[in-house]
């Protein structure tokens, strides 16, 4: 370690486009402060590449505070890296030490094809939402007063917990089956727990699960890996709830 910080070896996935095969490239960075965020370390690497006339590494990011769900790096074999309950952008370099070699790869899943380097296509999530992740209410100035439907605090809190999913896809990237069950069940649960969402609950779960399958996400075999890596602590209970919703909808649906 120099007095200015850590020296690190980075093994980074480079892939020109979805048609390219891709490979790992090795880069050295030095003087990395422990106070840097992981993405600031990536910025430092990129600045170095640009100054040397090379192409920087592409990666998704925007808010850099753990809420937009853009950042999505597989670091040393773990979605969002070694820390728990954080996204990649919230990971800090103090979790690493001088001389470390760090592997940085994109999410890997058939349903999330690589676009370039570390950037993947997660629009499958959007299409699942388009299939039913909503309550069918039009905008109007005449919806009933918000307090006319009291909701037990517990239900509201559970719905909120499920609703904190940021759609990052770490659950899929982490699952050996590339299942999207945690993501889908979070939305199904949120809406099924609220009286406003109950009316369409059956169609919703059938449509969303149908789209999930069509997108090529794998099936769930209850390994629980998704819950461990989920930066927002979305609970496996949601998957259980969705399975119940799905069963009862499949049996009673008139479709």
């Amino acid at each position: 370690m120099t007095e200015n910080g850590m020296n690190l070896t980075l093994k980074v996935w480079r892939q020109k486009s979805d048609k390219d095969k891709g490979q790992i490239e090795t880069y050295q960075v030095k003087d990395i402060s422990e106070h840097m965020s992981f993405l600031e370390m990536m910025d430092t690497m990129n600045e170095q590449l640009i100054t040397a006339g090379k192409e920087p590494v592409a990666f998704d990011h925007d808010c850099r505070e753990g809420i937009c769900g853009s950042c999505s790096l597989f670091i040393n074999g773990e979605a969002h890296g070694p820390d728990r309950g954080v996204t990649t952008c919230q990971l800090h370099m103090r979790k690493f030490k001088d001389g470390d070699t760090i592997y940085i790869e994109p999410w890997r899943s058939k349903a999330f094809p690589v676009i370039k380097d570390l950037v993947v296509d997660r629009t499958g999530f959007d299409r699942i939402m388009n299939a039913g992740g909503f309550i069918s209410v039009n905008t109007s100035g005449n919806t009933q007063d918000a307090n006319s439907i009291p909701i037990p605090k517990d239900d509201a809190d559970h719905a909120f917990d499920a609703a904190t999913c940021i759609g990052c896809g770490a659950c899929v990237a982490t699952c050996k089956n590339a299942s999207a069950m945690l993501f889908v069940s979070a939305k199904v649960s949120q809406l099924a727990l609220l009286p406003q969402g109950k009316i369409e609950a059956k169609d919703r779960v059938l449509n969303m699960v149908g789209q999930m399958d069509a997108e090529g996400f794998g099936s769930c075999t209850n390994t629980g890996a998704c819950e461990v890596e989920c930066p927002k602590g979305i609970s496996l209970d949601n998957i259980a709830r969705m399975n119940r919703e799905f069963m009862s909808a499949s049996i009673t649906s008139d479709k």
């Binding site: 909503f134 905008t139 919806t143 918000a146 909701i151 037990p152 605090k153 949120q190 609220l194 406003q196």
Partner: peptide, 17 residues
Amino acid sequence: DQCVAQGVPFAREYGGL
């Protein structure tokens, strides 16, 4: 009103309001 109708889970008190 609109957001609650959409299912936005605002914070609630114990009475459900």
